[in-house]
Each structure stands twice: as C-alpha cells, then as structure tokens.
C-alpha cells in the first residue's frame, strides 16, 4: 500500500514537472516570437515614447523571472490575457471554441473504439485469414493517407459529388446562433432546447469530419489491439484456459482480453489526446470553429496570447489524459504495485 502511494506520488511529481516545463515553454514562445506584442497593441506607426510607455506598462522591461512570475500567477487564475483579433479574454474564447473540438474528438474516439477494438480482436484471433487481410488493408489506408487528403476526398465525394453531407462548418446558416449555449456541445444543447431540427443539422455537419477522424484513429486502435492480443494469445495461461475446457470465445474474451485491456486504456487515452490536439488540419479543411482553427488563425496573425493560451490548454489536456490512463492502470491492473 505504502509502495502504491509512493509510486503514485512519483507520477504526480512528474506530471507537475511536465506542467512546469510546459508553462516555461509557452512563456518563452510568447517572448521570443518575432511578433512584437507592443507594436501589436499600439500599432506600427505609434510614436517612440508611446511605444516605450506601453512597453513599461506591459511589464516587458522587467527581468524575465519577474515576467514569468506574473505570467504564471495570471495563468493559474485563468487569465491568459486578451486576444487582439477577437478582443475577448483568451479564456472565454477557449471556452467558446473548445466544445466544438471536444464534441468532434469524443464522437470520433467513440466510433473508433467501438469499431477498432473488435476489429483488432478478430484479426488477432483469425491471424492470417482473409478477414485479417481485409482489416489490415483497410487500416493501412487509414494510417498512411494523410488526414487532409482523406478530408478533401471526403468533401469531394460526399459533398460536391453525392451531396450527401452538408458543406463545411458546424451548423447550417438558419440554425446559427439559434440554440442557447449551455455546454457548448451542439448535440447536447439542441436536445436541451428541444430543437430537433438543430440537432439533426448538427449531426449532419458532424458526420463527415467525425467519420474521417474516426477512421484515422480506428486504424491505430485496431493495429495496437491486434498486436496486444497476439501477444496475450501466445501466453501459457491460454493453454491452461483451453485445458480447462473453455470455449474458444471465453478463452479470447475471458482470458486474453483482460490481459490487454489495461494497455488498451493507454492507447485510447493517447488517441483521444491526439484527436483533441491534432484536429487542427481537419478543422481547417472543414472550417470547423474549434480550438485548432482558433489556434491557427491566431498564429497566422501574430496574436500571441491565444497561441500561448491554447498551447497551454492542449498541453494540460494531454498531461491530464496521461495521468488518467496512469490512474486507470493502477486501478485495473493487479500486477502494478
């Protein structure tokens, strides 16, 4: 028990170190980027004394350590500064854009897991069979074709060609702004408002980007599940389970799968993190008003506060998911001391 507490404390410690490193890096990004935040604030043509006054007022003449201190204490209070572009506090922008990314990533993960895990199990059990080959080919296509190619192809076929899905964006024009924002998740908010029209509109807009992200993630999940299962099925305990007289299926699901479930949790957590941070490209192609798009727009315009804030949030989500995987590992794997 004591050992458990200790090793968990060690994990927590490394999480804190990671978060600290993350804060230092984002702080540095904010300082060393070629965009001068003073000029961005007062304009390129401001007289020299105005620039100097603004510079002093923004604390940019203080020693770096002082600047870091005021930065980190602001961040800890949820204050990431204001965006020059939107004129909103960065934190409220993030609160506005993040749910769009979250909704898409969560649905994609859900679908990818529901398809990928069974596919991985089946192709491991039937290793070398036609089913295995088919699953393998489908997966190779999934993780070797870049997401933006898939996304553009998807739009070309299903939107331009077949007109099965709506075009880019998260909502049709007539529903835009019609549903009061409670959670920021359109599916949830439209149901809360009882607006089925808006709900189905959101579903239609989600379909293509979610399926493309899900396909991409499924390829990875399937491949990992297959590898884990093949490894577990080689175990001697599989022979003893069969020697007990268990059916093939109870051996696979009752003995092999519980051995890989814990490793799978880590894969799923990392996939989820990857979806949350890596949806940037998909969001760009689909004009999805999510965190990735917010980040890229800010980056293109040298709007540094949103860049730093978003990077911090994404990093924290990543670390948080890793920590969650670690906790689940400890809870579910009896071997972890």
């Amino acid at each position: 028990m004591n050992r458990k507490v200790k090793s968990f404390a060690a994990t927590l410690g490394s999480v804190l170190v990671t978060l600290f490193g993350l804060s230092v890096i984002t702080f540095m990004i904010g300082r060393v980027m070629p965009v001068d935040p003073v000029l961005a604030a007062v304009g390129d043509n401001a007289p020299a004394d105005v620039v100097a006054a603004a510079r002093a007022e923004m604390g940019l003449d203080d020693p770096l350590i002082v600047q870091y201190w005021s930065y980190i204490s602001n961040v800890l209070q949820g204050d990431f500064g204001r965006s020059v572009l939107t004129r909103n506090p960065v934190i409220s922008d993030i609160a506005h854009y993040f749910p769009a990314t979250l909704e898409m990533a969560t649905l994609a993960l859900l679908i990818a897991t529901l398809l990928g895990v069974p596919a991985g199990i089946i192709s491991a059990v039937k290793q070398g069979s036609l089913t295995d080959q088919i699953i393998r080919v489908v997966c190779i296509a999934g993780h070797s074709v870049p997401v933006f190619v898939l996304a553009l192809l998807g739009l070309l076929i299903f939107y331009v060609g077949l007109d099965l899905v709506p075009g880019p964006g998260r909502q049709g024009v007539i529903y835009d702004g019609m549903v009061p924002s409670v959670t920021g998740l359109l599916l949830v908010d439209s149901l809360l408002a009882g607006d089925m029209g808006a709900f189905w509109d959101a579903v239609h807009h989600l379909t293509l980007p979610v399926l493309i992200l899900a396909y991409f993630s499924m390829a990875y999940i399937t491949r990992m599940t297959r590898a884990f299962m093949l490894d577990a099925l080689k175990g001697e305990f599989i022979i003893s389970a069969r020697a007990k007289g268990l059916s093939g299926w109870s051996v696979v699901m009752g003995h092999a799968f519980p051995n890989v479930a814990v490793q799978l949790i880590t894969v799923l957590a990392l996939t989820y993190a990857g979806l949350l941070e890596g949806a940037v490209i998909t969001e760009t192609v689909f004009a999805w008003p999510g965190l990735g798009q917010y980040l890229t727009t800010a980056l293109m315009n040298g709007d540094m506060n949103p860049v730093v804030g978003t990077t911090l949030i994404i990093g924290a989500v990543y670390v948080g998911l890793n920590l969650l995987a670690d906790i689940l590992y400890r809870v579910f794997d009896p071997r972890v001391a």
Partner: peptide
C-alpha cells in the same frame, strides 16, 4: 479439464495474471 486435467510447467505463466 472434465475427464483429463492438464498441469503446465510454470505457474508464473500458466495462471492468468489478471
């Protein structure tokens, strides 16, 4: 298992660890 029991070499590997 029913009519014939089968004991393997190393319980470290032949028992399911989880």
């Amino acid at each position: 298992g029913g009519r014939a029991g089968f004991i393997l070499q190393d319980p470290k590997y032949s028992l399911n660890p989880v």
